[in-house]
């Protein structure tokens, strides 16, 4: 199962990230996880929020370039070797991970890893075959 990530284009200058956070907070949207990739010129903010559709609308009306990206959320045991196992599995089947980032839920024992994979369907099959659970949007929201 895949979940919706919101990706936002940010110019690499002061206050832009704060502007996104403020925009979302005004709408009472909670950011669950985030990662920021950047170059000298610009950055791409990737966020997992509790209401992706609403977030997209809000960001766009505030003039941001944003889009929904389908990503996979995998539960990983929060201990040494947890992440390694998943990567091994994907690597064995030559699945390339474009990028990933993780977050730890305070109420749970497991960490959650967000993976951006081009061939998402195949990755999901491989993970399933190897008994690795992926989270649905509902499940993620319920956390």
């Amino acid at each position: 199962m895949s979940v919706k990530q919101i990706s936002v284009f940010l110019e690499n200058k002061k206050g832009r990230l704060a502007e996104v956070a403020k925009t979302l907070s005004h709408e009472k949207i909670n950011i669950r996880a985030l990662s920021l990739a950047d170059t000298a010129d610009f950055g791409v903010l990737r966020i997992i929020v509790d209401n992706p559709d609403r977030s997209l609308t809000v960001l766009k009306t505030h003039g941001f370039v944003a889009q929904v990206t389908e990503v996979i959320a995998v539960e990983v045991e929060d201990r040494p070797g947890g992440l390694s196992r998943i990567l091994e599995v994907l690597d064995q089947d030559n699945v390339n991970v474009e990028y990933m980032y993780a977050y730890v839920e305070k109420s749970r024992e497991n960490a959650i890893v967000i993976c951006r994979i081009d061939d998402r369907e195949r990755a999901l099959q491989i993970l399933e075959k190897n008994g690795i659970a992926t989270l649905s949007a509902e499940a993620l929201k319920a956390l």
């Binding site: 990530q5 990706s7 284009f9 990739a37 950047d38 170059t39 610009f42 791409v44 990737r46 370039v65 944003a66 889009q67 990206t69 474009e98 990028y99 951006r116």
Partner: peptide, 10 residues
């Protein structure tokens, strides 16, 4: 930048 050019990948 605009919607049609944008990508989540750097």
């Amino acid at each position: 930048m605009n919607e049609s050019l944008f990508s989540d990948e750097i």
